[in-house]
């Protein structure tokens, strides 16, 4: 298969949604990519009924779960914005050293960015859960 045929074959996206969960041989960013999509879809599913009935909420514990979903999407979104839009941590182009070259994202600045993302996610999720489980019931909502 030539390069053009190879690209056309993969552009057909034969794996569909199951392709998101193809983790073997990929770095941890692949898992974040799958989770980002799933959390994004879940947020849209929450958002639409919330639009039409502004007071609608799934309940205290489901609100806390919603917090985990939203804060993950936000934390990973911040990482993606820094990395893809602003180019933070991308570094200079390297010569390809086949076949033993490790992906750049495994070490260096991108890995620190990933660690910061996880940290930001945990902090935001704790704050959201505190408001959902403790503050909101005290307000009578």
């Amino acid at each position: 298969m030539g390069e053009r045929e190879y690209l056309e074959y993969y552009a057909l996206n034969r794996r569909g949604v199951s392709g998101w969960f193809r983790m073997r041989g990929y770095t941890i960013e692949r898992k974040l990519y799958a989770l980002h999509r799933i959390t994004g879809i879940l947020i849209v599913l929450f958002m639409l009924p919330h639009f039409y009935s502004t007071g609608w909420h799934p309940g205290i514990w489901w609100d806390a779960l919603l917090g985990i979903i939203v804060t993950f999407h936000v934390a990973n979104g911040v990482r993606l914005t820094l990395l893809e839009l602003l180019g933070a941590g991308i570094g200079k182009p390297l010569l390809v050293k086949k076949p033993f070259q490790r992906p750049v994202s495994i070490e260096g600045r991108q890995r620190y960015l990933l660690a910061l993302t996880v940290l930001l996610f945990i902090v935001l999720a704790v704050i959201w859960s505190y408001y959902a489980v403790i503050v909101k019931p005290l307000m009578g909502g």
Partner: peptide, 22 residues
Amino acid sequence: HYIAGVLIVVTGLIHLLANNDP
């Protein structure tokens, strides 16, 4: 899409504080 994402973080925080922080 990215700009909207940044706007959501700012305005969404204000929305959450308005409805959840006494």
